[in-house]
Design a protein around this nucleic acid. Sequence first.
DNA 1: CTGAAAGCGCTTACAG
DNA 2: CTGAAAGCGCTTACAG
Lengths: 341, 341
Amino acid sequence: MSKKQNTTLKELANHLNLSISTVSRALNNHPDISASTSDKVKRLAKKLHYSPNLFAKGFRSHKTHILGVIVPNISHYFTTTILKGILDESETLGYRVIISESKNDDQKQSEMLQTMIQFGVDGILMALARKTRSIDDILEVASRIPLVLFDKVSDKIPCTQVVINEEEAAYYAVEHLINTGKTRIAIIKETEQSFNSKKRFQGYLRALNEHKIPIDEKIILSTEDISLEKGKMLANILLSLKKRPDAIFAITDSAAIGVIKALHKFKVNIPEEIAVVGFSNSIHSTIISPKLSTVDQPGEKIGRTAIKYLIEEIENPKDDMITKTIEIKTNLIVRDSSFIP
Amino acid sequence: MSKKQNTTLKELANHLNLSISTVSRALNNHPDISASTSDKVKRLAKKLHYSPNLFAKGFRSHKTHILGVIVPNISHYFTTTILKGILDESETLGYRVIISESKNDDQKQSEMLQTMIQFGVDGILMALARKTRSIDDILEVASRIPLVLFDKVSDKIPCTQVVINEEEAAYYAVEHLINTGKTRIAIIKETEQSFNSKKRFQGYLRALNEHKIPIDEKIILSTEDISLEKGKMLANILLSLKKRPDAIFAITDSAAIGVIKALHKFKVNIPEEIAVVGFSNSIHSTIISPKLSTVDQPGEKIGRTAIKYLIEEIENPKDDMITKTIEIKTNLIVRDSSFIP
DNA sequence: CTGAAAGCGCTTACAG
DNA sequence: CTGAAAGCGCTTACAG
């Protein structure tokens, strides 16, 4: 065998002619143990690189100190900022995190939930896959261990949910465009009634209504699986209208960047002829030219908040499952794709 | 208690008036068990949503089927593509993955290694933090469990290492510039002798040498912590030279994008006056205009390969630790920032 | 074909 | 102040 075995309590006990119980207590600073014994044990432990087997420890207490995290796509920059918050906070609180990618496949998502339970995670943090139908599996999980949803959530699942102020953020983004003199503001959103898209659309409508700007269905465009390419396509449609919009609010940055690329192609001046605002403050938003005005979503804070609530629920279990929604504030960042006020 | 306990073998046994051993064997398709018993057990197990406690299982065999992964920064797109490969492949092979971010802090990295051992991971996959000094801790880990390095590696650590063909990739990138008629090719690299930077620089030198192009120290620029901003700064220096380069090879995409931004500012035509080539094929490379020529690094493949080697070593332990380096082929992608041949 | 017992590494109530 | 014993959920050699 090339690999060294880990040192165990038993070995320490044998070396010192003590019982396993005593060694255990010495290492855990139990008050009963004499200082001299405690010292001896600790010295030997250090010398032999003893490190407790957390498995065995958790085994007794039914706690693994491992949390499960499921996200649709690990490559989205926004997701990675959330993960940063999750990893950092969980590590300082003494938990490790198992991450899985559902790839927006709700079948896969169910399987992952299942294996996470099998691996004995103490709780699960999750952003739902698109078109999640099988709520049943998720409810079943929530009945066993604490579950917290973030970003992609659903009010059909009774649990803590951490989101951004989607509606308000969209409201401010659109109001900003109105304040810079724009009156014909298009929106590019998703067809399916995803929580996020729906909320952002509501914010759009409220901004127009409150500023007495008529709603025009012709400049409300929807697409499935919103993306850069889709942004381009829909921008082309908007450009072909008799009455072009003078601003476009895209509910994701990638779509907004597609819009900018389409506008470039047709030599449309940004923001003079058409202003553009996105949503997310992805890293792309400062690479594209003109730099994109967008809504900054504080990913790290979302991650930190979500994991804190989860761990709180793990360590202080409550009897009742209540849907509690925590809203994290966002921040509109105005850049060159819209007028600076 | 609101949370349901997980079903155990004991409960199944009690329900059926069988022993725990029999139930265990039935569930594991042991040949000794009669079909009727086996059926009964399986039906009840399904009904009660029994799922084995992998903790208890692993506890006996000293296998947790959990792997540790440490990366410097989870937000780099390239890193996320590697993680995708790791997650996907490990899940199909029946392993789960704990991810930690060292933030290029080698102190933190050592701690992470330590807690991963404590959590009983079966093996560790790691990209080294910049300026990793305490090789000792890493060697200590490698003596206990299988360790595989990827991307950021070091030949001082005797273990399997999965990297791209850094030297060759840089060679082809520079040769491509030479083939398009460029003769004064600058390089922007890192000061510290990181494995990657060193190799890419070697490729640069070899390309120039083989094509009999003189090396000019004035257009070999180095920086610490290479980034977009540093790319801009160094490009400015190059532009201020009496004899400007006619091409710039930046050893990372972000630096290359900084270069493009600087060239834009000084109205330099790309690629006519100065061509630019980056390294990584990050998502930015098609957002920037002109689109960036760059070296595509197949992240998923790197991840998959690394995890396969790790699991191979876990499941078939060898006595000897040998440094084995696996090189993954890259692919030069020519876009608008350099001439299409 | 089925069961009782040991053991994986640890903690802790119970004795002494 | 220290130790023997039970138990966490599972598997498996040993009996029968």
